[in-house]
Amino acid sequence: MTAPQLYSEQALADCDVVANSTMNRARGLTGVNSYARELGFDPVVRLLAAPGPPAWLDLCSGEGHALRAAAARLPDDAVLTGVDLVGPRTRSPLPPTVELVTASTADWRPVRAYDLITCVHGLHYLGDTLALLTRAAGWLKSDGLLAADLDPASLRLPDGGPAARPVLAALRAAGFEYDARRHRLTLHGGRTLTLPFTWLGADPAAGPNYTGQPAVASYYRPSG
């Protein structure tokens, strides 16, 4: 196997597959096509159990429908932040507790810690997936939860071979849990961590992943 032409984060942001408009843009909070269904829990229930003002960061948030719906069920001091490369296409007024940021997750940094960080099917379209997971681990509160969909088949070695086994081993050693049946990655409790891989670039022409949608493959060199 040989690696295809690999894209940088900047070049990747200009690819149509990364600005995918079908995976997460219309997803609501609860119901059939919802965050609750994909994550296996209702984010609001989790947030209401958190001490202090609840804070939720949703990465690759699409139109932000889930955050808008959550705002109606959460107290007025909640902080609900959505970050998306394309951003919402509708300009309807936001609830006071919701902020939707149009930015690349490769560049954006928060100014606070969160009780809940989610990335529902968003990792499928990112370049350096492991870098975002590393950063997001540091954005969690000490009792916070990170939950994301991860396709290990999209992680490749420099020669194009699968990197799933060493990457998942490193993630588990860092404290993550991975449910292979649901393709769900979780981390309980914020922390500073490093992962022993160097990102080489990404292939936006990797083809469909387990969802049936075109996705990005990320290439890594083990560095430890």
Score class of each variant (00 low, 15 high):
P93R: 13
A78V: 05
D76I: 00
L133M: 11
R156V: 00
C60V: 07
D77I: 01
G161D: 15
W108D: 08
R109S: 14
A147C: 13
V101Y: 11
H65K: 11
P95Y: 01
T97P: 13
D77T: 07
L94D: 06
P96I: 07
L123N: 03
P158R: 03
A153M: 12
L94Y: 04
A55F: 07
G127W: 07
L85E: 06
R73P: 11
G161R: 10
L132H: 06
D143P: 00
A153T: 11
E99R: 15
S142L: 11
S154D: 12
S104H: 05
L150H: 02
H121Q: 15
D58S: 12
A71H: 07
T105I: 14
D107T: 12
C60M: 11
G138D: 02
T81Y: 10
R156Y: 04
E63H: 12
P166D: 11
R73I: 10
A70F: 01
G122L: 11
A55P: 04
G161M: 02
S92V: 06
L116T: 00
L133T: 05
T134L: 13
H124R: 05
P88A: 14
A55Y: 05
D77K: 01
C119W: 02
R112L: 12
P93T: 08
E63I: 08
R135W: 12
R109W: 11
P54C: 09
W139D: 08
A147L: 03
A103T: 00
D76V: 07
L150V: 00
S154E: 12
P110Y: 09
L126E: 14
R91F: 13
P158M: 01
A147I: 06
D107A: 14
T81E: 13
P75Q: 04
L100Y: 03
A106G: 10
L59P: 07
P152Q: 12
P95S: 04
R68G: 10
P166T: 01
K141A: 10
P162F: 01
G144V: 04
S142F: 01
P88K: 13
G144T: 01
L57T: 01
A163Q: 05
L123H: 05
P53M: 07
A103G: 05
R73D: 12
T102K: 15
V79N: 05
E63P: 04
P95A: 03
L140G: 08
T102A: 12
G87K: 12
P96A: 15
P158D: 06
G82T: 08
L130K: 07
A148P: 03
R156Q: 03
S142K: 03
I117A: 08
P53F: 02
A136D: 06
L100C: 03
A106L: 13
A131L: 14
P152R: 06
C60P: 09
L116I: 04
G122Y: 05
Y125D: 12
G161W: 05
D76W: 03
A66C: 13
A72E: 14
C60K: 06
G52C: 07
V98A: 09
L146V: 03
S61G: 08
A69E: 15
W56R: 08
T118G: 08
D128R: 01
L94W: 04
A136I: 08
P54G: 08
W56T: 00
E99S: 15
D84M: 10
R135T: 13
T81C: 14
D58P: 08
